[in-house]
Protein backbone atom coordinates (compact mmCIF):
# COMPACT_ATOMS: atom_id res chain seq x y z
CA UNK A 1 0.00 0.00 0.00
CA UNK A 2 1.62 3.27 -1.12
CA UNK A 3 -1.10 5.64 0.02
CA UNK A 4 -3.88 5.16 2.55
CA UNK A 5 -6.44 7.67 3.86
CA UNK A 6 -8.53 6.72 6.88
CA UNK A 7 -11.41 8.98 7.95
CA UNK A 8 -9.53 12.15 7.11
CA UNK A 9 -11.07 15.48 8.02
CA UNK A 10 -9.85 18.94 7.09
CA UNK A 11 -11.41 22.35 7.45
CA UNK A 12 -10.33 25.95 6.99
CA UNK A 13 -11.25 29.14 8.75
CA UNK A 14 -12.40 32.17 6.84
CA UNK A 15 -14.16 35.40 7.74
CA UNK A 16 -17.49 33.61 7.98
CA UNK A 17 -16.25 30.82 10.27
CA UNK A 18 -15.02 27.26 9.78
CA UNK A 19 -15.48 25.70 6.35
CA UNK A 20 -15.22 21.89 6.21
CA UNK A 21 -13.32 20.77 3.10
CA UNK A 22 -12.78 17.05 3.66
CA UNK A 23 -15.29 15.11 5.73
CA UNK A 24 -14.11 11.63 6.61
CA UNK A 25 -12.25 10.58 3.46
CA UNK A 26 -11.00 6.99 3.27
CA UNK A 27 -9.34 5.24 0.33
CA UNK A 28 -6.08 3.58 -0.59
CA UNK A 29 -3.74 3.27 -3.56
CA UNK A 30 -1.46 0.37 -4.46
CA UNK A 31 1.97 0.57 -6.10
CA UNK A 32 1.68 0.79 -9.89
CA UNK A 33 -1.94 1.96 -9.72
CA UNK A 34 -3.18 5.17 -11.25
CA UNK A 35 -6.03 7.14 -9.76
CA UNK A 36 -7.99 10.14 -11.01
CA UNK A 37 -9.51 12.46 -8.47
CA UNK A 38 -12.27 14.57 -9.95
CA UNK A 39 -14.82 17.01 -8.64
CA UNK A 40 -16.09 20.53 -8.97
CA UNK A 41 -13.99 23.54 -8.03
CA UNK A 42 -13.89 23.87 -4.26
CA UNK A 43 -14.78 20.24 -3.65
CA UNK A 44 -11.50 19.60 -1.79
CA UNK A 45 -9.43 17.87 -4.50
CA UNK A 46 -6.31 19.98 -4.09
CA UNK A 47 -6.52 19.84 -0.31
CA UNK A 48 -6.65 16.05 -0.45
CA UNK A 49 -3.65 16.03 -2.77
CA UNK A 50 -1.69 18.38 -0.50
CA UNK A 51 -2.37 16.13 2.51
CA UNK A 52 -1.25 13.11 0.50
CA UNK A 53 1.88 15.01 -0.47
CA UNK A 54 2.73 15.79 3.20
CA UNK A 55 2.38 19.48 2.40
CA UNK A 56 -0.52 19.99 4.76
CA UNK A 57 -1.66 18.12 7.84
CA UNK A 58 -5.11 16.61 8.33
CA UNK A 59 -7.22 17.86 11.25
CA UNK A 60 -8.39 14.33 12.06
CA UNK A 61 -7.96 10.83 10.67
CA UNK A 62 -4.81 9.01 9.60
CA UNK A 63 -2.75 9.02 6.42
CA UNK A 64 -0.02 6.58 5.42
CA UNK A 65 2.46 7.22 2.63
CA UNK A 66 4.96 4.50 1.70
CA UNK A 67 4.22 2.79 4.99
CA UNK A 68 4.77 5.85 7.18
CA UNK A 69 1.96 7.46 9.07
CA UNK A 70 2.07 11.20 8.43
CA UNK A 71 0.58 12.22 11.76
CA UNK A 72 3.55 10.57 13.48
CA UNK A 73 6.05 12.66 11.55
CA UNK A 74 7.31 16.12 12.46
CA UNK A 75 8.19 18.80 9.90
CA UNK A 76 11.63 17.31 9.25
CA UNK A 77 10.19 13.83 8.86
CA UNK A 78 7.57 15.04 6.40
CA UNK A 79 10.25 16.95 4.48
CA UNK A 80 12.40 13.80 4.31
CA UNK A 81 9.42 11.83 3.02
CA UNK A 82 8.81 14.42 0.30
CA UNK A 83 12.45 14.20 -0.75
CA UNK A 84 12.60 10.42 -1.02
CA UNK A 85 9.17 8.94 -1.67
CA UNK A 86 6.87 11.60 -3.07
CA UNK A 87 7.06 13.61 -6.28
CA UNK A 88 4.78 16.49 -7.14
CA UNK A 89 3.77 17.93 -10.50
CA UNK A 90 1.83 21.19 -10.43
CA UNK A 91 -0.22 23.08 -12.97
CA UNK A 92 2.22 26.03 -12.60
CA UNK A 93 5.26 23.75 -13.16
CA UNK A 94 7.15 25.14 -10.13
CA UNK A 95 10.56 24.94 -11.74
CA UNK A 96 13.46 26.87 -10.29
CA UNK A 97 13.90 29.72 -12.77
CA UNK A 98 17.55 30.33 -12.00
CA UNK A 99 18.62 26.71 -12.64
CA UNK A 100 19.12 25.13 -16.05
CA UNK A 101 16.79 22.41 -17.27
CA UNK A 102 19.46 19.81 -16.46
CA UNK A 103 19.88 21.09 -12.91
CA UNK A 104 16.11 21.27 -12.43
CA UNK A 105 15.60 17.66 -13.56
CA UNK A 106 18.22 16.19 -11.25
CA UNK A 107 17.39 18.56 -8.43
CA UNK A 108 15.06 16.42 -6.33
CA UNK A 109 17.19 13.28 -6.66
CA UNK A 110 20.23 15.41 -5.73
CA UNK A 111 18.38 16.62 -2.63
CA UNK A 112 17.89 13.04 -1.50
CA UNK A 113 21.46 12.18 -2.50
CA UNK A 114 20.34 9.50 -4.97
CA UNK A 115 21.12 10.75 -8.45
CA UNK A 116 20.96 7.87 -10.93
CA UNK A 117 22.49 9.47 -13.99
CA UNK A 118 21.51 6.62 -16.32
CA UNK A 119 17.93 6.80 -15.17
CA UNK A 120 17.93 10.57 -15.55
CA UNK A 121 19.22 10.29 -19.12
CA UNK A 122 16.55 7.70 -19.95
CA UNK A 123 13.85 9.98 -18.61
CA UNK A 124 15.26 12.97 -20.49
CA UNK A 125 15.37 10.99 -23.73
CA UNK A 126 11.89 9.62 -23.19
CA UNK A 127 10.51 13.12 -22.73
CA UNK A 128 12.46 14.54 -25.66
CA UNK A 129 14.34 17.08 -23.58
CA UNK A 130 17.91 16.24 -24.65
CA UNK A 131 18.29 19.43 -26.68
CA UNK A 132 16.94 21.66 -23.95
CA UNK A 133 19.25 20.71 -21.10
CA UNK A 134 21.36 23.87 -21.05
CA UNK A 135 18.43 26.24 -21.35
CA UNK A 136 16.67 28.04 -18.52
CA UNK A 137 12.95 27.40 -17.90
CA UNK A 138 11.93 30.83 -19.17
CA UNK A 139 13.22 29.88 -22.63
CA UNK A 140 10.88 26.86 -22.87
CA UNK A 141 7.27 26.60 -23.95
CA UNK A 142 4.62 25.59 -21.44
CA UNK A 143 4.56 22.01 -22.71
CA UNK A 144 8.32 21.75 -22.44
CA UNK A 145 8.30 23.20 -18.93
CA UNK A 146 5.75 20.65 -17.82
CA UNK A 147 7.87 17.88 -19.34
CA UNK A 148 10.79 19.16 -17.24
CA UNK A 149 8.58 19.09 -14.13
CA UNK A 150 7.55 15.49 -14.92
CA UNK A 151 11.16 14.55 -15.62
CA UNK A 152 12.18 15.98 -12.25
CA UNK A 153 9.47 13.91 -10.57
CA UNK A 154 10.26 10.64 -12.35
CA UNK A 155 14.04 11.11 -11.99
CA UNK A 156 13.61 11.08 -8.20
CA UNK A 157 12.19 7.50 -8.42
CA UNK A 158 9.28 8.26 -6.10
CA UNK A 159 6.90 5.66 -4.67
CA UNK A 160 4.02 8.09 -4.97
CA UNK A 161 3.57 10.66 -7.70
CA UNK A 162 0.96 13.37 -7.24
CA UNK A 163 -0.12 15.65 -10.07
CA UNK A 164 -2.41 18.66 -9.69
CA UNK A 165 -3.99 19.55 -13.04
CA UNK A 166 -0.73 18.66 -14.82
CA UNK A 167 -2.06 19.63 -18.23
CA UNK A 168 -4.26 22.50 -17.13
CA UNK A 169 -2.01 25.08 -18.77
CA UNK A 170 -1.44 23.19 -21.99
CA UNK A 171 -3.26 22.99 -25.27
CA UNK A 172 -5.14 19.79 -26.11
CA UNK A 173 -2.50 18.21 -28.33
CA UNK A 174 0.38 18.99 -26.00
CA UNK A 175 -1.67 17.88 -23.00
CA UNK A 176 -2.33 14.49 -24.61
CA UNK A 177 1.33 14.09 -25.46
CA UNK A 178 2.54 15.01 -21.98
CA UNK A 179 -0.01 12.73 -20.30
CA UNK A 180 0.96 9.83 -22.51
CA UNK A 181 4.62 10.19 -21.60
CA UNK A 182 3.87 10.60 -17.91
CA UNK A 183 1.74 7.46 -17.75
CA UNK A 184 4.35 5.48 -19.64
CA UNK A 185 7.17 6.53 -17.31
CA UNK A 186 5.08 5.93 -14.20
CA UNK A 187 4.27 2.46 -15.43
CA UNK A 188 7.97 1.79 -16.00
CA UNK A 189 8.94 2.86 -12.47
CA UNK A 190 6.07 1.10 -10.73
CA UNK A 191 5.09 4.20 -8.79
CA UNK A 192 1.52 4.94 -7.76
CA UNK A 193 0.01 8.00 -9.44
CA UNK A 194 -2.81 10.20 -8.23
CA UNK A 195 -3.96 12.93 -10.62
CA UNK A 196 -6.29 15.76 -9.70
CA UNK A 197 -8.16 16.79 -12.84
CA UNK A 198 -11.27 18.35 -14.28
CA UNK A 199 -10.75 16.54 -17.54
CA UNK A 200 -12.92 13.51 -18.17
CA UNK A 201 -10.45 12.42 -20.86
CA UNK A 202 -7.59 12.25 -18.39
CA UNK A 203 -9.75 10.59 -15.78
CA UNK A 204 -10.74 7.93 -18.32
CA UNK A 205 -7.07 7.02 -18.80
CA UNK A 206 -6.58 6.11 -15.12
CA UNK A 207 -7.04 2.72 -13.49
CA UNK A 208 -9.42 4.13 -10.89
CA UNK A 209 -11.53 7.24 -10.50
CA UNK A 210 -12.75 8.92 -7.35
CA UNK A 211 -15.11 11.86 -7.29
CA UNK A 212 -15.28 14.42 -4.49
CA UNK A 213 -18.41 16.39 -3.76
CA UNK A 214 -18.69 18.76 -0.81
CA UNK A 215 -15.81 17.03 0.95
CA UNK A 216 -17.15 13.50 0.53
CA UNK A 217 -16.22 10.73 -1.87
CA UNK A 218 -19.16 9.76 -4.06
Amino acid sequence: MVLKFEAVHKSFRDSEGTVPVLRGISFDLEAGQTLALTGESGSGKSTLLHIAGALEAADAGRVWVAGQELTQLNDSGRAALRRTDIALVFQQFNLIPSLTVAANISFQSALSGQVDQTHVEQVVDALGLSDQMKKYPEALSGGQQQRVAIARAIAAKPKLMLADEPTGNLDEGTAEDVLEQMLKLVAQTGAALMVVTHSTNIAARMDRRLQLRSGLLV
Binding site: D75, S76, A79, R82, R83, I96, S98, F107, Q108
Partner: peptide
Protein backbone atom coordinates in the same frame (compact mmCIF):
# COMPACT_ATOMS: atom_id res chain seq x y z
CA UNK B 1 9.25 33.12 -2.97
CA UNK B 2 8.52 30.63 -5.75
CA UNK B 3 11.88 28.95 -5.37
CA UNK B 4 11.48 28.74 -1.61
CA UNK B 5 8.06 27.15 -2.02
CA UNK B 6 9.43 24.67 -4.54
CA UNK B 7 12.40 23.78 -2.35
CA UNK B 8 10.13 23.16 0.60
CA UNK B 9 7.67 21.13 -1.42
CA UNK B 10 10.56 19.04 -2.69
CA UNK B 11 11.51 18.19 0.86
CA UNK B 12 14.01 20.75 2.12
CA UNK B 13 13.29 21.20 5.84
CA UNK B 14 12.41 24.74 6.86
CA UNK B 15 15.19 25.00 9.43
Amino acid sequence: RGMIRTLRSLGVPLR
